[in-house]
């Protein structure tokens, strides 16, 4: 028996639920020596902006108990270089490519980026990164700190992007909110095909000897196993409120932690920080999920979704 692992998000069909999270997998080439990329359900790129961004001042990362604190600041070569130099590599792969995009100053940049990506055959879907804690978002015209912290702003971005592309849209949500389900509902109503959660949790660490913050930008985003229970809780809450598929993430390290998210309601799961520790971890997680399903005689992944008994 080969379990059916396929997942559908809007018109996006994935052969299995395993994705890699934006910002933790570069543009995929970095991992080719360690992992057969074609086993992945999908690849989410490092976030692309309209123009190149050099990113934040270093130090940009530090390890915390069971976690990784980062403030990279969306360093990326910009959409033009991405399309010319990074995109052609995906021609060789048989994996749906999900391109993560973000705006630097204006919401209209999401539209411009989506228009450009809509023309690219190799792009299977677009993820809207409205939740990066390490950059300023659209502060020129609104007072919103983070789009993902405002239901109206979230809906505005999703609607605007939906108008210019037929590709499936995934909206990436922030855990730094009072009620993540409000934002998820806003994204759903605006036409988002799926939501991915959670992005990193804003956090801070201090070097007591130097009496300085460990990151140059003082505050960064926390990822890794430390945040997993928070992420699982948010996926569960969201699952009970929205109908669109959820991509669950936050500290997935192995098959068991991936299954936690699926049982809490995620249709797909995404591996982030664990890629840094073991660049081959995705193949191990996938094997583990299959093994679990065979052991429990579950033929289709759908049967596990949201299947916790409480």
């Amino acid at each position: 028996m080969t379990p059916n692992l396929s997942v559908v998000i809007g018109t996006l069909k994935l052969k299995n639920p395993l994705l890699v999270s934006s910002g933790t997998f570069g543009y995929a080439q970095e991992f080719v020596d360690f992992l057969d990329l074609n086993i992945l359900g999908g690849i989410v790129t490092k976030t692309i902006t309209l123009f190149p961004r050099q990113g934040n001042r270093p130090p940009r990362t530090c390890e915390t108990p069971a976690g990784l604190l980062n403030s990279i600041g969306l360093e990326n070569p910009g959409i033009k270089v991405f399309i010319q130099e990074k995109l052609p590599y995906f021609q060789k792969l048989k994996v749906p490519l999900i391109v993560s995009i973000a705006a630097q100053d204006e919401i209209s940049e999401f539209v411009e980026l989506a228009e450009k990506l809509d023309k690219e055959r190799l792009v299977a879907a677009i993820e809207l990164n409205i939740s990066c804690p390490n950059v300023r978002h659209c502060t020129k015209k609104s007072n919103v700190k983070l789009i993902a912290q405002d239901a109206k702003a979230t809906a505005l971005v999703v609607k605007a992007v939906k108008k210019v592309t037929t590709k499936p849209i995934i909206t990436k949500l922030s855990p730094n909110v009072t009620d993540i389900t409000e934002i998820a509902l806003a994204a759903e109503e605006a036409g988002s095909d799926g939501v991915s959660l959670v992005n990193t949790i804003t956090a801070m660490a201090v070097d007591v000897e130097k009496r300085r913050p460990k990151l140059a930008m003082v505050i960064g985003g926390l990822s890794g196993p430390a945040i997993r229970p928070i992420a699982v809780r948010m996926v569960w809450e969201t699952y009970k409120k929205v109908r669109i598929p959820i991509i669950g993430m936050g500290g997935i390290m192995d098959a068991d932690s991936a299954l936690e998210f699926i049982l809490a309601g995620a249709s797909a799961i995404s591996v982030g920080t664990a890629n840094f520790i073991n660049p081959n971890v995705c193949s191990e997680i996938l094997r583990g999920i299959c093994g679990y399903m065979i052991r429990h005689r579950i033929t289709s992944l759908e049967r596990l979704r949201g299947a916790i008994m409480c």
Partner: peptide, 17 residues
């Protein structure tokens, strides 16, 4: 020498000016 997260160029965490 610096702190690194991934070591393989994926995270862009270990940059120097």
């Amino acid at each position: 020498e610096t702190h690194m997260a991934c070591g393989i160029g994926a995270c862009c965490g270990c940059v120097v000016q």
